[in-house]
Design a binder for these strands. Structure first.
Length: 483
DNA sequence: ATGTCC
C-alpha cells in the first residue's frame, strides 16, 4: 500500500487539509482532515490517514471521507471519522460505527457550586464508586428477563423511566429521545442478549468514566444561558456505551458481512472495512440490530444517571437539589439523515465513529429551550485535564454532514502509555491538584493518563475556528470514577 | 471498546 506523506496533503484552510482523489486510483472522493497544522504531525504517526483514504473507496460514499482533529487509528475506519453513503445503494459498514455501538456521553447539571462541595469530594468519590459498577465484564443489580431485554432494546431510555431508574424529563434531552424506532430485538443474537443481561447501569472499562466537574470558564453567555450554565456550577459527565451486548452485535455482523460481501461484488482495500448495501437483507438486519444496541446504550446511561442521583442525595442530603440532563449524544453510530450534496437533497447513511452529531439552531428536533442555541455537543477531555461544552452550528452541515469531534483523541497506544506511566504516582499527583480518582485498576489509570492523549484545547480550538461548533464552556474535573 | 481467541 502506498505510504502517505505530508506532501500528499493539500492545505485548503488553516484548519482543513485534503488528500485528493488522485492520490490513489480506487478513491471515489477526496479524504479531508480537519485540524491545525500542529496536530497534523501527530496524526501522521499512525495509520489513521491511510485508513481515511481506504474509507474514500466505499461504494456510494459522498463528498469526502472526513476525520476530526481527535482522529486516531481504529478497526478499519479511523476513530474520529465521518463517512456518508448515498441511499438506496450506499453501504453500511460496522467498522464505521465501532465495536462499542452508541458509545456516547451525557452531562447532568446540578444546582450546587464548587465551593459548596469542595470539602466533600473524597467522600463523594467513594460513594459514587460504590453506587456505579465499573470495570471489565462487571455486572450490576439489574438482571433482565428475556421480555425485559426486548423492551430495553425496543424502547431504550424509556424503559429506565418506566421501571423507576430514570426521570421522564430526561427523555426530551437525549439524541432521538433515547429510542431509535428502527430497532428490532429479533436481529440481536442470544449470545449478545446474554452478555447484556446484567450490564445495565455499569460503565465498563477503557476510556469510560463518570466524572464530577465545575464550570471554569464561559465563552458564550447567550448559549450558556439557554443551556442553564453558570461559572462555578457543578456538573456530572457520564461516558459509556452498550457494553458487552454492543460488542457482540459488532462481532456477529462483521462475521456475517464478510461472508455476504462477495454476493454484492464489493471489494474493499482492508477486510476490516467489510460492508454491504444498507438496502440488502444483511444491511437491514445489521441496521436494526445496531439501533437496538444503541437503545441499550441510552438505557444504560439513563440507569447510570439514577445511580449518580442516588449518590448525590446520599452525600448532599437536603442540599442535593436536582440533577438535570443537559443533553446525551452518541459518538459511535450510523444514522439515516438528509443532507445537501452538490445542491441536491440526498438521503444518506452517515457513519460517525468517534464523532458527534452537531446540528445547528436550524434543526427542528431540538428541544424548544435549545432552538436558538443549537444542539449541545459534549467533549470529554483526558482524565484530569478538562472537558468542553460546545454548540452545533449551521456550518457543521456544510462541512462534514453535521458532525464534530468527540474528545481529545489518543496519541499513545494503551501499551505505550502503560510503559510510560506510573499509575499510583499519577493518582497521588492528581489528588494533590484536588482531583479524586476511584478506579478498579492501576492499569486503567495508566492507559488513560493525560500523556496518552492529545491536547483537548487544541482539538476544541480547531473545531471552533472551523466554525463546525462553537465553544460555550470549559469544565474542570474534581472527581473521576473509572473501571 | 470487549468474558483482550469459543
Amino acid at each position: 500500500m502506498k505510504k502517505l506523506r505530508k506532501t500528499d496533503i493539500i492545505k485548503i484552510e488553516d484548519f482543513l487539509w485534503e488528500i485528493p482523489k488522485s492520490f490513489r486510483e480506487d478513491m471515489l472522493v477526496p479524504a479531508r482532515v480537519l485540524c491545525f497544522e500542529t496536530l497534523l504531525d501527530d496524526i501522521l504517526e499512525d495509520r489513521s490517514l491511510n485508513q481515511l483514504v481506504n474509507v474514500a473507496t466505499l461504494p456510494g460514499i459522498q463528498k469526502a471521507s472526513f476525520v476530526m482533529p481527535d482522529v486516531h487509528e481504529g478497526y478499519g475506519f479511523p476513530i474520529g471519522g465521518v463517512a456518508a453513503t448515498k441511499l438506496p445503494d450506499g453501504v453500511i459498514s460496522p467498522g464505521g460505527i465501532g465495536y462499542d455501538i452508541n458509545c456516547g456521553v451525557r452531562l447532568l447539571t446540578s444546582t450546587l457550586k464548587i465551593e459548596q462541595i469542595q470539602d466533600k469530594l473524597e467522600e463523594l468519590s467513594k460513594e459514587m464508586y460504590a453506587q456505579i459498577p465499573s470495570g471489565m465484564g462487571k455486572g450490576g443489580d439489574i438482571h433482565l428477563s428475556a421480555e425485559e431485554m426486548n423492551q430495553v432494546l425496543t424502547t431504550g431510555a424509556e424503559w429506565a423511566v418506566a421501571n423507576g431508574y430514570g426521570v421522564e424529563e430526561d427523555l426530551a434531552y437525549i439524541e432521538n429521545n433515547g429510542k431509535l424506532v428502527e430497532a428490532d430485538p429479533d436481529m440481536i443474537s442470544e449470545m449478545a442478549k446474554k452478555r447484556g443481561t446484567s450490564q445495565l447501569g455499569t460503565i465498563g472499562s477503557g476510556n469510560h468514566f463518570v466524572e464530577v466537574d465545575y464550570i471554569e470558564e464561559i465563552y458564550d453567555e447567550e448559549v450558556a444561558k439557554a443551556y442553564n450554565l453558570e461559572i462555578g456550577q457543578v456538573v456530572i459527565l457520564i461516558h459509556t456505551g452498550s457494553r458487552g451486548l454492543g460488542h457482540q452485535v459488532a462481532t456477529d455482523y462483521i462475521r456475517l458481512m464478510m461472508n455476504a460481501m462477495p454476493k454484492y461484488n464489493i471489494k474493499v482495500p482492508d477486510r476490516e472495512l467489510t460492508c454491504v448495501p444498507l438496502n440488502s437483507v444483511e444491511g437491514e438486519q445489521y441496521f436494526k440490530a445496531m439501533c437496538a444496541a444503541a437503545n441499550y446504550a441510552w438505557c444504560n446511561r439513563e440507569v447510570i444517571s439514577a445511580e449518580v442521583r442516588t449518590a448525590w442525595k446520599n452525600i448532599f442530603q437536603e442540599n442535593a437539589g436536582e440533577l438535570k440532563l443537559l443533553y446525551d449524544v452518541a459518538h459511535n453510530i450510523a444514522k439515516i439523515e438528509t443532507h445537501t450534496v452538490n445542491g441536491t437533497r440526498e438521503n444518506l447513511v452517515v457513519h460517525r465513529k468517534g464523532a458527534t452529531r452537531a446540528f445547528g439552531p436550524d434543526f427542528e428536533e431540538l428541544p424548544p429551550k435549545y432552538k436558538h442555541a443549537g444542539q449541545p455537543v459534549i467533549i470529554p477531555g483526558s482524565m484530569g485535564t478538562c472537558s468542553y461544552i460546545l454548540a452545533g452550528t449551521k456550518k457543521s452541515r456544510e462541512l462534514a454532514f453535521g458532525s464534530c469531534c468527540h474528545g481529545a483523541g489518543r496519541r499513545l497506544s494503551r501499551t505505550a502509555a502503560k510503559k510510560q506511566v506510573n499509575a499510583p504516582v499519577l493518582k497521588e499527583k492528581l489528588k494533590e491538584r484536588g482531583i479524586y480518582i476511584e478506579a478498579g485498576s492501576f492499569k486503567g489509570i495508566a492507559e488513560e493518563a493525560p500523556i496518552a492523549y492529545k491536547d483537548v484545547n487544541l482539538v476544541v480550538d480547531t473545531v471552533h475556528a472551523s466554525g463546525i461548533a462553537k465553544k460555550v464552556a470549559k469544565l474542570k474535573p474534581v472527581v473521576v470514577i473509572k473501571g
